[in-house]
Design a protein around this nucleic acid. Structure first.
Lengths: 159, 159
DNA sequence: CCTTGACCTCAACCATAGTTCAGGTCACAG
DNA sequence: CTGTGACCTGAACTATGGTTGAGGTCAAGG
């Protein structure tokens, strides 16, 4: 246990400054500060009040960026990260679990866009975009004098 | 030409107040004001400075809502609307042209999400999310001491 | 010891797509 | 002719995901 021998600190224990995390992750320092305020990452402070990150913050940041790419808002990413074990570093299975959740999300979003595309295709076919028969469009112009009634411009999201 | 006979004004010429457009389109008055400031819709003003809309504003508003549903930002919707003829009311073919453009857009977005899903699926398979081999993930953690280099956390969007 | 670069906080600002509110006007009904 | 509801403007506020700048501190090299 050569805790006094600074030369032999295990690589995993070498902390990173915010600038290093920024350089390695490709994320701006300001964004890292922002993620920290939002609770997505955490740091230790030195006696001089500077941030020091554990190396696994790099995986977190990558996960954040990948998740954003998938279209997940930061709040949901934060929730997902909170499900990671607090006592140990996340392992491959932990990350896999989170990724699977995003895949479900992505599948749903793709399916939704495909439905939308089909509806739009119908609209192009019938030339009706924004006219009465169109599933995408406003039913009120058709209802006309039947009175105001409930406002329903678009078909409801099944969510 | 019974222009003096208010009873026989053609239906197409009956103007709508902002409240009527709101009720029929399902869009809030504040949103209609907002669309007008952004140049997506236009109105005539009465002597008392109130807005009066031509009936075809309803189609425009529907088009705006449908377009937003497709995921198009207002700025692009505005550009699309500017390509409509200024001299005559838009016809079915005009709307069809715009819809086709959105369909192309939607197809591209679906394809992009599908690529993303495939990448993510690979990542789940290899358990590597955020690790070095992953196409979605940060290459810098792998490059490590090779220096900073260009920051490329994520694969580039082909756009 | 002093300069330089990296770091710190906090506040303000960017875009997007609006909503809400204050204070004032318009149009119509009684 | 007064009340009521619909309308007007402009400013401020919402949320998301940050960036930018001011003003100050920290750490290391010469």
């Amino acid at each position: 246990m050569p805790e006094h021998a600074t030369e032999r600190v295990p690589w995993d224990h070498v902390e990173l400054t915010v600038g290093e995390v920024a350089a390695r992750s490709g994320v701006a320092v300001s964004a890292l500060h922002f993620y920290e305020r939002r609770g997505l990452i955490a740091s230790r402070r030195t006696s001089g009040n500077q941030r020091r990150y554990r190396r696994d913050v790099l995986r977190r940041v990558s996960f954040i960026r990948v998740s954003q790419r998938v279209g997940i808002p930061l709040a949901r990413i934060a929730e997902a990260l909170e499900t990671l074990p607090a006592d140990r570093a996340p392992n491959v299975r932990d990350w896999e679990r989170l990724s699977r959740a995003w895949r479900t999300d992505l599948d749903a979003r793709i399916a939704q866009l495909e439905r939308l595309r089909d509806d739009l295709t119908d609209c192009i076919g019938c030339g009706c975009l924004s006219l009465s028969r169109c599933v995408l469009a406003n039913p009120h112009d058709a209802l006309g004098d039947d009175g105001p009634g409930p406002r329903r411009l678009l078909v409801d999201d099944p969510e």
